[in-house]
Design a protein around this nucleic acid. Structure first.
Lengths: 226, 226
DNA sequence: GGCCGCCTTTACGCGGTCTTTACGCCGCTT
DNA sequence: AAGCGGCGTAAAGACCGCGTAAAGGCGGCC
């Protein structure tokens, strides 16, 4: 059974999450402030943490860092503050995903499954199939409807890092640091150009991307499911 | 880094091997008699053992057997006794190769790389057929439309490593490390020249290669299908 | 000794790739 | 309604890796 820690000061949100999550087969542990949350993360060893940024005692961003010091457990952040700065900061501090309130239960469950996925199936990773696309990272080959798609080095590297965390948001900073090096974390122009090139080659309709999705002000996400 | 254990009682031979091997990018561990050699083979877990048969304490043949009891590490035997009997006995006891003294450094390095090769990558069947090409690695023969194609040593080794992982991209570094040794991982000029030579000999149309495909900025790939 | 094959090294032209810039669109703010 | 920032898109020049030819050196073989 997978244990999930919910950190939120609003009782009705905790109740809503508790019911939804346990209905989907998860075990739920709760904490109502940052202090309790950090302790519970250490004591209960949850498989996932769902954390509200607006806590009464400690700033949510600090809670992320505190948990990250001790563990690499996936963290999904909730917040009414839909400011892009908050998202980027949370992700860069080590959060795995960001869900703005209000959120639908279906959407949240999808994010939960995505966050838990790398833990469950460890063996994947070498081959990823999405629709008629097939990304074979062992063989360094990408095919679309059976036909090989030629990708340049940068294109391939960009796709690779996106696919390394399917359904996860990767921040501009994260991507640029990995593909272009730490010196180019500000060159978002690279991203615009290369994301566009990948879409031209991989998407059925490049104008309305279904595979590589933009998270405005934050980064990009490679989608494997609806 | 690949660690090689050298077992020899003559200091100047050890020195010669130490310098030659480390110049080619290997890490060297030394032992000056059979007892030390057996101990070091167990303790240091080398990737390869180079063993002189003429040792002061234990007969070299016994050392081979002792090491073989504990490990399957490749063993290259050195000896002034160029007797056929010694050679056969050493190989029968589990040595991988036999180099009579005196030896040239070039020859020894080639043996070293050959001995390490099956460790790094060895799977593929002994015979690979692509179109009208037939690569028979057991017999060391390559034919094209029935006619034998003469390949130089380097050409053959390059083709061999490419064929060891069909349809798989091998990086420049990977190929250079295996065929030319770890000290030449930067000499991509070798690759350009030898890939070109192989294409001239193997491809139907060397200008538009179908067999040995370039992955720009990454490496090369031997294609068996589409 | 001289020939020959192989390995190594260098040089150069070409084509693809990367980088950079500019512009129009859209959504959000003021 | 206008301004602004982020994004998508196209295009152009700079740059780099690659293919190719060729020459020098080394060793083996006759």
């Amino acid at each position: 059974m997978m244990r999930i820690l919910v950190v939120d000061d609003e009782p009705q949100i905790r109740k809503f999450l508790r019911i939804s999550l346990s209905a989907n087969g998860y075990e739920v542990v709760e904490a109502e402030n940052g202090r309790q949350g950090i302790d519970a993360a250490a004591r209960e060893k949850p498989a996932l943490v769902i954390l509200d940024l607006g806590l009464p005692d400690i700033d949510g961003q600090e809670v992320i860092s505190a948990i990250r010091k001790e563990s690499s457990v996936p963290i999904i952040v909730l917040s009414v503050r839909a400011q892009e700065m908050d998202k980027v900061e949370a992700l860069d501090r080590g959060a795995d995903d960001y869900v703005p309130k209000p959120f639908g239960i279906g959407e949240l469950m999808a994010r939960v499954r995505a966050a838990l996925r790398p833990l469950q199936k460890d063996t994947a990773g070498t081959i990823l199939e999405v629709g008629d696309l097939r990304l074979d990272f062992a063989r360094h080959v990408v095919t679309r409807a059976g036909a090989e798609v030629h990708l340049s080095k940068r294109e391939y590297e960009l796709l690779h890092i996106l696919a390394s965390k399917p359904d996860h948001v990767l921040t501009h900073t994260e991507i640029l640091k990995t593909v272009w090096g730490p010196a180019h974390v500000e060159d978002t122009a690279y991203l615009r150009v290369y994301v566009n090139q990948l879409r031209q080659k991989l998407e059925a309709d490049p104008v309305t991307p279904k595979l590589i999705v933009t998270e405005p002000g934050v980064g990009y996400r490679l989608r494997t499911s609806g």
